[in-house]
Design a binder for these strands. Structure first.
Lengths: 358, 358
DNA sequence: TCCCGATATGTAAGCGTTTACATTCCGGAC
DNA sequence: GTCCGGAATGTAAACGCTTACATATCGGGA
């Protein structure tokens, strides 16, 4: 019969010793039984489980960490939690980690200082987590190696690090698709709103997208005019500012490739304010297929963002368990790491169309 | 001179003993010195700090947790990381916690099962965190008391729990503002797209908003027609579906109050698809002032969402340190808990206007 | 019947801190 | 010159697990 007055006394929490005593076994056996390790008689396991349940026993994670040297935690480092892309990726990862019984920690790396701090503090992080997911953040091979040495697994989203699993689309291809679509529609005066790489830890998607874009329009015999690459900082405000500048420029482009939907939304704002209609006066294509792209009927290049996060988490967990197994004595097999490259698709809506007849 | 070959050997990490030996003091003194506790000579503190730095010593958080019983972690529980509102609040909280040197953990409570699990697992959480922020999740007083007993502080966003700090707007007032605006414009046939409360842990903002809205239109001598309250599930798809149903209904409303901007965006999609223009054929008002509200020129009721998160985190940290101080012997002062009620403001844009003349 | 290898279980040594309590040291009041 | 209180420091006992190693148990094969 269970205690019906369970919340009367301060009730010291049950420890593994209590369970051991209750089940008439040693703490070692309790530990093994509760973690489903081999070499425990089924009858014993059952008895231990029953006693543990009746005592509402919960192992103290701090003690387990100290003793085992594992934290049961995965950490995701992300430039910001604001922004649809990042929060969606993080959400995908969270779900997978929670299902795997892992604690989920996040650390935001907004400012360049924080970036540097992340590097400095990799040491700190190493003690606090078993696995690290980097979203649009790149580290040097040395840093990755250091992490590996400290037995923290690594997975990246949006970039690749050799020897570690990653999830990243083909950004060059993204640029090409955008270019082909716009050029195919008849546009010749095209601008792009993207982002710039700054510092050693920046991510390289914008660079690849630009490269792909430019090589594709070159292939069509077109070149990007001077001053037609704008930095939109990958947010709405940046997109708005960039498009405003473009509208006011001497050679107003007839089409714009925005490297993210959020920047495209800002661009739409700017167009609206000038009485210009997207897809009619100026064509606009984005990237992501943001939840709201449909609302504003934005032509875009869709990528499966939520999958990025969940896939990365799955790959990470895979590596983590593989590592733990190999630690346990099984001969180390350096399996080739899985790197996913999700497909992207052009989604035509109404912000793109043929250039206006002058 | 520091070791120039720092990454050659496996290099066992420095422990507190190493620092103690290096500084010629006991581990107790090192511990005190590094944590800036009183009763350490300044000269000693300095020497210890120097040695620690030269050894790149980092205290092991797991050991510290076990010994001190504190985790240095705050956890935020949130219905979902998807969605602008939640991710913005979480982002705000993350920044504050990071600045305070606290680890930041998040746990998503998407499904009703997970809600129940959260309750069941409060025990689990208790051992893993020093403070809990609940976003749009309510707990019973007993549950809150249990947390308190386990010495984990609590703060809530979007609802109130007696005896704990919280951040929540006046949702009744939000409803009133929406009603007054729409009625003031001349609308009489008004519908609302909101959400329903389900289960014991649902949040009550939608209920309060509806109450405020209805009481206000009643005050104007209007009543909500049968079937004009739609469940939009607080997301774009739900808003779209709700508005579609409204459009097709016998008595199409001339104005709609959507309880969140995201639902309003969905509603706009539906209107667009039917060739109806928001603010002209049908007026639409949202809540939040989402980053994109401006893009689609949505009239809305602004609330300072990022502040919700940062303010809640600050209040939480305040309680945490107060608790720790009172544990340390200072007489327990049950200070009244701070509950913030951020202001909301009507932001008029172009999705609302007078009803169309028939 | 005896011995052997699995399998099941127990013993106890960590893991790296924090902190209660004990000790030393010091200057000033008497 | 003693004595005393407080500041500085040290000693060692937790904290609650995991796990290497030792031991006990058991069923067969020889």
């Amino acid at each position: 019969m269970t205690n019906t007055h369970s919340n009367e006394s301060p009730a010291r929490r049950a420890t593994i010793d209590d369970v051991a005593a209750g089940a008439g076994v040693s703490v070692a056996t309790v530990s093994r039984a509760l973690r489903n390790l081999p070499n425990v008689a089924e009858s014993t396991r059952q008895r231990v489980a029953d006693v543990a349940a009746s005592l509402a026993y919960q192992p103290d994670p701090a003690a387990a960490r100290l003793a085992a040297g594992r934290t049961g935690t995965v950490t995701v480092a992300v430039p910001s939690l604001n922004g649809w892309y990042f929060s969606t990726v993080v959400a995908g990862a969270e779900t997978v980690c929670a299902d795997a019984g892992l604690e989920f920690q996040v650390i935001g790396i907004a400012t360049p200082q924080q970036r540097d701090r992340l590097l400095d503090e990799l040491q700190r992080i190493e003690r606090r987590t078993d696995g690290l997911i980097l979203i649009d953040i790149t580290v040097t091979d040395e840093q990755a190696a250091s992490l590996q040495r400290r037995r923290v697994s690594l997975a990246t989203v949006g970039s690749r690090t050799i020897g570690h699993p990653s999830v990243a689309i083909d950004d060059t291809h993204v640029g090409r698709v955008a270019a082909d679509h716009l050029v195919g529609l008849g546009h010749r005066r095209i601008a792009v709103i993207g982002g710039v790489a700054d510092g050693p830890m920046s991510f390289d998607a914008p660079i690849a997208r630009r490269r792909g874009f430019e090589s594709a329009i070159h292939a069509h015999g077109i070149t990007l005019a001077e001053g037609s690459f704008m930095n939109g900082q990958f947010n709405v405000a940046g997109g708005y500012a960039a498009m405003t500048a473009l509208i006011d420029s001497a050679e107003r482009p007839t089409a714009v490739f925005a490297m993210s939907d959020e920047m495209a939304f800002g661009a739409i704002m700017a167009l609206n304010e000038h009485g210009l209609v997207p897809g009619d006066d100026v064509s606009l294509i984005g990237v992501d297929d943001h939840e709201f792209a449909q609302v504003v009927r934005l032509t875009t290049i869709r990528q499966p963002v939520a999958d990025h996060g969940s896939a990365a988490a799955r790959l990470l967990i895979e590596t983590m368990t593989a590592r733990d197994r190999s630690d346990a004595g099984v001969h180390r097999i350096d399996a080739e790491v899985a790197s996913l490259q999700p497909e992207v698709h052009l989604v035509e809506r109404s912000t793109t169309g043929p250039p206006p007849r002058t």
